[in-house]
């Protein structure tokens, strides 16, 4: 039995004529302790997929099984890091994290909560900014808070919805390593959604391309057999890494080409008009 399993999951939005089928027959199996990355184009239904697993939305048909049981709504076992941080702007960094910790561990003493929160803020290198409000922070710092908030909840499954999508390349690289460092402490199961193939290959054990929506389905799995901890610079010269990256990109390019080829070019019939002749 897989740790997380999606069976023939379909999801569509709208009704009648405006109905768009976003996901069709998604089948996915993730084992305990695996780090899986799903890569795909923007607008291919990645966020819908992760919201389904988080329990924020329900599938139209098919099943999402977590530890063998169908999921019902959200749960503290499945933590999610949102694409747009979703920090509460009226709370400080500390309070944002503390609020999550207090709701997940209601029986903890204040002292325990404080230590736990501070340790996670320290892990994302934000101790100096613990009492700042989100609006005083840069994008990268905000996403760090979001990471700390989710990981401080000690979820069994970490869901990441393009967590680094809005960041610049430098911050992105740093945060990738930070997330990996924290993750490697207890190697929980993780599902990363990204549009960056390099990011997927660098971070995950398994990369699965998402064939673009509407009617998105999952492509073949690519196992990343590169030893951890991985070094970003060394990786660039690793043949295995290059080969994997190229084959994933090739695959994505192929389906991208298919997608454009598949679109019908609608032709407009022009009215048959002849200019008036003035003689």
């Amino acid at each position: 039995m897989a740790y997380l399993e999606l069976k023939n999951v379909c999801k569509s939005y709208g009704e009648g004529k405006n109905k768009t089928e976003v996901l069709r027959n998604i089948n996915l199996k993730i084992e305990e302790g695996e780090f899986v990355a799903i890569v795909g184009f923007t607008g291919s239904g990645k966020t819908t997929l992760i919201n389904l697993i988080a329990g924020l939305i329900e599938p139209d048909s098919g099943q999402v099984l977590f530890k063998g049981k169908p999921i019902q709504g959200t749960s503290h076992e499945r933590g999610i890091i949102f694409q747009n941080y979703s920090l509460l702007p009226w709370l400080t960094v500390y309070d944002n994290v503390a609020m999550a910790v207090k709701t997940v561990f209601p029986n903890w003493k204040p002292k325990e909560v404080e230590e736990h929160v501070n340790s996670f803020i320290a892990k994302v290198n934000l101790s100096h900014a613990a009492h700042k409000k989100p609006k005083e922070l840069s994008g990268g710092m905000r996403q760090r808070v979001a990471v700390a908030r989710t990981l401080a909840m000690k979820p069994e499954l970490i869901l990441m919805d393009e967590p680094l999508g809005a960041l610049d390349a430098l911050t992105r690289g740093n945060l990738q390593e930070e997330i990996l460092n924290i993750w490697s402490e207890d190697k929980r199961t993780a599902l990363l959604i990204t549009n960056d193939v390099d990011e997927g290959v660098f971070m995950a054990d398994k990369v699965i391309p998402l064939r673009p929506g509407p009617k998105a389905t999952l492509g073949p799995e690519f196992d990343i057999k590169i030893d951890r901890p991985r070094d970003k610079t060394a990786l660039n010269h690793n043949d295995n890494f290059k080969k994997l990256r190229n084959s994933i990109i090739e695959y994505l390019m192929e389906i991208g080409a298919e997608r454009t080829a598949g679109q019908e070019v609608s032709a407009y019939e022009l009215p048959d008009l002849v200019p008036l002749q003035f003689s």
Partner: peptide, 26 residues
Amino acid sequence: DYINVAKVLQLGTYQKIFKIILPSSF
């Protein structure tokens, strides 16, 4: 986004109103 946070944290109705909805509509 804030409602999603409330959902993920599984806040009760009372907490959702006082910790998320009211501060954000202040």
